[in-house]
Computed example of a mutant assay.
Amino acid sequence: MKITQKEAKMLCNSVELRLISDSLSPGIDSLNVKKIKTRMGNCAKAIKYWNNRYQVLEKSHAKLKKAKIEIPILPALKKENFKKKNILFQETYDRFKKQLTKLEKQQSVVKTSSKKRK
């Protein structure tokens, strides 16, 4: 399920949008291996965070209900947004991983060709 940039702008804050835009052309072409690995780590953190976020909120709401504290109702829309963000960061992670593989192949070709010259 591809999420459009318009949807991403509605779902994400500026830091998250920057991470996503870095995974798209032409931004991803200017990144080196170290920067890509850093961004992949950030994506992994975001995936982990948004993966079960709704369940965490449901559990905290259940605790508050048990304590008879008045709470706002969790809309189903929020649950859908959490799922979309998780998918969005998974797609971003995959784009970084694909670029990393491409760069590592290029580096290995350069290393092997320089060894042959010696």
Rank of each mutant, 00 (worst) to 15 (best):
K2L: 12
Q5N: 10
K6W: 07
E7G: 04
K9P: 00
C12S: 14
C12Q: 05
C12N: 02
C12G: 03
N13L: 02
V15P: 00
R18F: 10
S23P: 02
S23I: 03
S25K: 15
P26E: 03
D29Y: 13
D29A: 13
L31R: 01
L31Q: 13
V33Y: 05
V33M: 05
V33E: 12
I36Q: 11
I36C: 00
K37Y: 05
K37L: 09
T38D: 06
M40A: 08
C43S: 09
A44I: 05
I47V: 07
Y49L: 06
Q55T: 09
L57Q: 09
L57C: 03
E58W: 10
K59N: 10
H61T: 02
L64G: 01
K65P: 00
K65V: 00
A67C: 02
I71Q: 02
P72N: 09
I73A: 10
L74I: 08
P75I: 05
A76S: 07
L77T: 15
K78D: 07
K78F: 11
E80H: 10
E80W: 02
I87H: 11
I87N: 11
I87F: 14
L88S: 07
E91Q: 14
T92I: 08
T92W: 13
Y93Q: 04
D94Y: 11
D94N: 14
D94T: 13
R95F: 01
K98G: 00
K98C: 08
K98A: 06
Q99F: 09
L103E: 02
Q107W: 14
Q107E: 13
S108D: 11
V109C: 09
V109Q: 12
K111Y: 12
K111D: 14
S114F: 15
K115T: 10
